[in-house]
């Protein structure tokens, strides 16, 4: 009988070792789920996976060669977040640029409400890979746009394409989604970081 009991004690010890490891794995995987959020962000930043462009001004293209042998079509696409009565569109729907060449495109926003608002545009590039080669030297999306009631504003965006842009990309879309940040106000002023 004593042998039986020592077996049982051995079992108990073995059990608690396995249980501890399994519970640790559960905790680890729960944390891993959350760790995936910054990992995904970093991954996208490096690979352009989700088409997010960097929201900080690039250096100018000084000393960069303009590759006149290639022409790339850049299409602009604008949307306003659901249910917000603003007008938001680019002056031109698409332009053709040589890699390395600096271009400016104006975007027009009009607040059709009778309230002052704060707007913020978020860019997205499709295919995402192109976002790695899109350099904006100036963009309204870098900061929040306060708009008075009924105000209409012209917002410039200046960019050039890195001549390292892969040859297979002849055309890409730069999309802006305009969000209403009036409520969040300045609290999220640094979200673009």
């Amino acid at each position: 009988m004593s042998e039986h009991e020592s077996n049982e004690q051995k079992h108990e010890r073995g059990n608690s070792r396995v249980i501890t490891r399994l519970l640790a794995s559960v905790m680890l995987m729960f944390a891993f789920g959350f760790a995936l959020v910054p990992l995904y962000e970093k991954f996208c930043e490096i690979t352009g996976f989700n088409g997010r462009t960097t929201n900080t001004a690039s250096q100018t293209n000084e000393g960069m060669n303009v590759d006149e042998t290639r022409v790339v079509t850049v299409e602009f696409h604008t949307r306003v977040s659901r249910g917000i009565p603003w007008e938001f569109h680019p002056e031109v729907r698409s332009i053709r640029v040589h890699p390395g060449e600096v271009k400016t495109v104006n975007f027009i926003i009009e607040n059709r409400t009778d309230k002052a608002v704060i707007a913020q545009a978020l860019p997205s590039v499709s295919p995402g890979e192109a976002s790695l080669y899109l350099n904006k030297t100036e963009c309204f999306c870098f900061e929040q746009q306060p708009l008075a009631a009924g105000e209409r504003a012209v917002m410039p965006m200046q960019f050039y394409l890195d001549p390292d842009l892969p040859d297979r990309i002849h055309r890409f879309t730069l999309s802006y989604m305009m969000y209403d940040l009036t409520e969040q106000g300045q609290a999220t002023a640094n979200l673009s970081e």
Partner: peptide
């Protein structure tokens, strides 16, 4: 064990 915590 590996994926239910991720769902959570």
């Amino acid at each position: 064990i590996a994926v239910m915590p991720v769902l959570a």
